[in-house]
Simulated scan of single mutants.
Amino acid sequence: METQIYHYIIDKANAFNCIIHAINDTENHIHLVVSIPPTFPISYFVKNIKGSSSNYLNNFLSRKENKFAWQTGYGVFSLRQTQLERAIAYVDNQKQHHLKGTFNN
């Protein structure tokens, strides 16, 4: 389901005029590097991505007995343009970081 949910999240972000630069997950969380317009509330973006993607997972991708829900919280970091490439590399390598038990770039 990974590919389908990634495409869903990217399409939803595009509808908000947001750009997903990187997306990757581990078994219990997902990381995104996103450019969000300055006039668009980050909390609105997160609420809608989490809500609509869990609805999509539960109603279209998974069996009814395996209900999916995101955790209630989220973390956000603001980046300068010069930090974008490093953040993308970090997210692209999420699975490797978690296999090694490291969280450094």
Rank of each mutant, 00 (worst) to 15 (best):
M1T: 14
M1S: 15
E2L: 01
E2D: 09
I5S: 04
H7T: 04
Y8L: 05
I9F: 01
I9E: 02
I9Y: 00
A13M: 08
A13W: 05
A15V: 01
A15Q: 14
I19L: 10
I19E: 14
I19D: 11
A22D: 04
I23A: 03
N24S: 12
N24T: 10
D25R: 08
T26A: 14
T26C: 09
T26H: 07
E27Q: 12
E27K: 12
H29G: 07
I30F: 01
H31I: 10
H31R: 11
L32I: 06
V34F: 02
V34K: 01
V34C: 10
S35W: 08
P37D: 12
P37V: 07
P38R: 10
P38G: 09
P38H: 12
F40H: 11
Y44S: 15
Y44Q: 14
F45H: 08
F45T: 09
V46N: 05
N48I: 02
N48R: 06
N48M: 04
N48W: 02
N48F: 00
K50E: 03
K50S: 02
G51I: 00
S53F: 05
S54G: 04
N55S: 09
N55E: 07
N55P: 00
L57T: 08
N58Y: 08
N58H: 08
N59K: 08
N59Y: 05
F60V: 06
F60M: 05
F60C: 03
R63A: 13
K64P: 09
K64S: 15
E65V: 04
E65R: 05
N66W: 13
K67G: 03
A69T: 14
T72M: 12
Y74W: 05
G75M: 05
G75K: 05
V76C: 15
F77L: 14
F77T: 06
F77R: 10
S78N: 11
L79F: 03
L79T: 05
Q81S: 12
Q83K: 06
L84W: 02
R86W: 01
I88D: 05
I88Q: 12
I88P: 01
A89G: 07
Y90V: 08
Y90C: 09
Y90L: 08
Q94G: 02
Q96K: 15
Q96R: 14
H97E: 04
H97D: 01
H98L: 07
H98S: 13
L99K: 13
L99M: 10
K100H: 08
F103T: 12
N104M: 06
N104C: 07
N105Q: 08
